[in-house]
Write a protein that binds this DNA or RNA. Structure first.
Length: 111
DNA sequence: AGCTTGACTTTGA
DNA sequence: GTCAAAGCCAAGC
């Protein structure tokens, strides 16, 4: 049992809990795990998330609502397409009504 | 062993 | 509102 792997698994768990048609940002997940400044690790975890098929990484964007991580997908179009398929409007690599579709794990889970 | 890069965020100017 | 710098931890070289 390695600690850093726990962190990754934790990130995966949270991402998996993201409801369909909702999105969140790295900072929220990082904060939920304890360190808001560790948002980079969330991205790194997402990189490892490729091994996990049940991790909807397309629902995780940066705090600006931009699809920054799309380049790491199989194809850059996949992320946007998946989001639009879930009812999320994406315009120029940015999520429309980001605040509306925003899903905060701390608020929705912890509360 | 150290240094650089990275799916980022926050704070200060 | 924007721009620059610091902080965070892990992987790659």
């Amino acid at each position: 049992m390695k600690k850093h792997e726990d962190f990754f698994q934790n990130v995966f768990a949270v991402v998996r809990l993201i409801p369909k048609g909702r999105v969140t940002n790295y900072g929220a997940i990082a904060k939920y795990l304890g360190s808001a400044r560790s948002s980079r690790m969330v991205g790194w975890a997402m990189n490892a998330a490729h091994s996990q098929k049940d991790v909807p990484a397309h629902r995780v964007v940066n705090r600006n609502g931009e699809l920054t991580g799309k380049i790491h997908f199989a194809t850059p179009f996949q992320m946007q397409e998946l989001l639009e398929k879930e009812g999320i409007k994406v315009v120029k690599d940015k999520i429309k009504d980001f605040q509306k579709s925003y899903w905060d794990p701390m608020k929705e889970l912890e509360l």
